[in-house]
Computed example of a mutant assay.
Amino acid sequence: MSTRTGVTEQAALAAIDGGCRTLRLPTMRSRFAEIATAAEREQLSYLGFLAELVMAECDDRDTRRAARRLAAAGFPRDKRVDEFDFAANPIVTAAVINQLATCAWVRNGQPLCLIGDSGTGKTHLLIALGTAAAQAGHSVRYVLASKLVNELAEAADEKQLSKTIARYGRLDLLLLDELGYMELDRHGAELLFQVLTEREEKSAVAIASNEPFSGWTKTFTDPRLCAAIVDRLTFNGQIIETGTTSYRLAHARAKRSTTTERRAQA
């Protein structure tokens, strides 16, 4: 069998395969025959067939990019906004979180603070909103506050501090979890302050803390430095309080209660 130009079908397929390899179009290469068959069946025009082929490549490329951004973010687990149990923690308003999931605050370089006790959903929301941002095309990094400070201290010892701070400064969104769980000496607090200053009013920062701002002096022992850090994290930003009642503990208790009842009925 040959094409109208006299090129055999086998040669045409080989040319397409080679061309897609050269141009780095893996989806076109793997799905060309499938899409061609569907186009013939649906009697698409040449332009329609080409459009289907190009859109398949673009869609798959977007999917691969999103997967790379999620991997680069370093999330410890998968959490999504639609998985959050707003009924279990009514203090958190679904409308507010869904608005944050549109990522306008990320595009505007605004801070976000999630404040509440353990088990109230802070980390879930932090990861979920970071995931939404990564899927929307933003570069995101999740890191424990203590781990970031240690990384900065090591970079300072190795004369790489400016490079490390610049790397964190280039991110669209930096997610700091467990801020307030450990006391930072003045040097550690100053290093963290440098990262926040690098990002101020340019790139978004979101933090999760089990301490209200009034208790941050236990983490940042220098009062003036503590005030400056709070200012960096709250100016033109949003504060969401997740409360003091652990719905994670409530779920565990409810699950145990249900299991006990079933055993009793058996």
Rank of each mutant, 00 (worst) to 15 (best):
M1H: 12
S2H: 13
T5D: 15
T8F: 13
T8W: 11
E9L: 12
E9I: 11
L13E: 11
A15Y: 02
D17G: 06
G19S: 12
C20Y: 01
C20T: 15
T22F: 11
L23V: 03
A33F: 01
T37N: 07
A38F: 06
E40T: 10
R41M: 09
G48P: 08
E52S: 14
L53H: 07
L53V: 08
L53G: 07
A56F: 00
E57D: 12
D60Q: 13
R64Q: 14
R68H: 10
R69W: 08
A73G: 10
F75S: 11
D78G: 05
K79C: 15
D82L: 08
E83D: 15
F84M: 12
D85W: 04
A87G: 07
N89H: 02
P90M: 11
A94I: 03
A101D: 04
A104Y: 00
V106S: 13
N108W: 00
N108D: 15
Q110Y: 04
P111H: 03
C113H: 00
L114G: 10
I115Y: 04
D117F: 12
D117V: 03
T120P: 08
K122L: 12
K122F: 04
H124K: 01
L126Y: 03
Q135F: 04
G137A: 05
R141C: 11
R141Q: 08
L144P: 03
V149L: 09
V149P: 02
E158N: 14
Q160T: 12
I165F: 05
R167E: 11
Y168G: 14
R170D: 12
L171N: 06
L175A: 10
G180I: 05
E183F: 03
L184C: 07
D185M: 11
D185R: 02
D185E: 06
H187L: 06
G188W: 01
L191K: 00
L192K: 07
F193V: 01
T197Y: 02
R199S: 00
E200R: 07
E201T: 06
K202C: 05
S203V: 02
A204N: 06
I207E: 01
I207T: 05
I207D: 00
A208S: 14
N210W: 01
E211W: 00
P212E: 11
P212N: 09
S214I: 02
T221L: 02
P223D: 13
P223F: 04
R224V: 14
L225S: 11
C226M: 09
A228K: 04
I229G: 13
T234S: 15
N236H: 14
I239R: 13
I240R: 07
T242P: 06
T242V: 08
T244G: 15
T244D: 15
T245D: 13
Y247E: 06
R253F: 06
R253Q: 14
R256P: 03
R256S: 15
S257E: 14
T259N: 14
R263L: 12
